[in-house]
Every structure is written in structure tokens, then in C-alpha cells.
Amino acid sequence: GIDPFTGEAIAKFNFNGDTQVEMSFRKGERITLLRQVDENWYEGRIPGTSRQGIFPITYVDVIKRPL
């Protein structure tokens, strides 16, 4: 089901994660935001896939912030 505490964002740019914990994505992908890790990073996942990880806040347009 849908978790009411998650947020939502759209990727503004392609992001290629450097490490296992970073999640790569392509511009235009819809991302579920799980939490804000710190002032620069979100943790999120791509709905319908097993992809999950952290990524820079500046790479996405936030539609709804996670609670």
C-alpha cells in the first residue's frame, strides 16, 4: 500500500551513484522519498522496482516532502 509518510519527487537530472548505498536514476523518473538523511541527501526508492538508496537533494524536484 501507500505509506502516508513518504514523499515524492521527480528526477531533474541523471544521477549515477558511486557506491552501493547510492541509487542511480534517470531524468524524469518518479521517486518515492523515504526520509531526508541530512541537508544534502534523501533516501528513496523507485516504485515498482527493487532500487533503493540515497541521492543528492539537488538532483530532484520535490513534489511532497517525506514526514
Rank of each mutant, 00 (worst) to 15 (best):
A9L: 05
T58C: 15
G1C: 15
Q36G: 04
P4S: 14
M23G: 00
L67A: 15
G53M: 02
F5Y: 13
D38E: 07
Q52W: 10
I31P: 00
N14Y: 05
T49E: 06
I46N: 01
N40W: 13
R35G: 07
S50V: 09
Y42F: 12
N16A: 10
D38H: 08
V37Y: 08
I31A: 00
G17V: 04
D61V: 15
W41Y: 12
P4V: 13
Y59G: 03
P47S: 10
M23T: 01
I46W: 01
G1F: 10
R45F: 14
I46C: 02
V62N: 03
G53F: 02
Q20V: 14
G17T: 06
I10S: 03
G53Y: 01
E43R: 05
V62T: 07
T32E: 14
F25Y: 01
T32H: 08
T6D: 10
N16F: 13
A9K: 02
I63R: 06
W41D: 02
F55H: 00
P47V: 11
I10T: 06
V60D: 00
K12N: 07
I63F: 07
E8Y: 14
G28N: 06
R65W: 15
R30N: 06
T19F: 07
S24A: 07
F55L: 06
Q52H: 13
G53Q: 01
N14V: 05
T58S: 14
F15T: 01
I54N: 05
I57S: 09
G7W: 15
K64G: 05
L67R: 13
E43Y: 15
R35M: 07
F5H: 15
K12E: 03
K12I: 12
R51H: 03
Q52D: 03
R35I: 05
K27G: 05
R65F: 15
V21M: 14
R65T: 13
E22H: 13
F13R: 12
Q20L: 13
Q52I: 09
W41C: 08
W41A: 04
G44P: 01
Y59H: 12
N16S: 11
I46V: 10
D18E: 15
E43Q: 08
I57D: 05
I46L: 03
R26M: 13
E8K: 08
T49D: 05
N14T: 11
T19L: 10
R30D: 02
F15N: 02
I54W: 07
V21F: 14
F13S: 08
G28W: 05
Q52N: 07
I10F: 06
R51E: 02
A9I: 04
Y42C: 07
F5D: 12
I46G: 01
T19M: 09
G44C: 01
I10L: 08
P56W: 02
R30C: 09
D38V: 05
I46S: 01
F15D: 03
P66I: 08
G7V: 09
A9N: 01
P47L: 10
R35K: 09
D61F: 15
G7I: 09
K12Y: 03
I63H: 06
D38C: 13
D18W: 11
G28K: 03
S50F: 10
T32F: 08
V37Q: 04
G1Y: 08
Q20N: 12
V37S: 03
D61Q: 13
K64L: 07
P4L: 14
R45T: 10
P56N: 03
T19K: 13
L34Y: 06
E29M: 04
T49N: 03
E8G: 05
L34G: 04
G44S: 00
Q20Y: 11
I31G: 00
L33F: 04
I31V: 05
Q52K: 11
Q36R: 10
F15G: 00
I63Q: 06
W41Q: 06
S50N: 14
D61N: 11
D38W: 08
Y42K: 00
T58V: 12
I10E: 05
Y42P: 02
D3K: 11
P47I: 09
D18F: 13
D3G: 11
R35Y: 08
Y59T: 08
G44A: 02
Y42S: 03
I57A: 13
K64V: 08
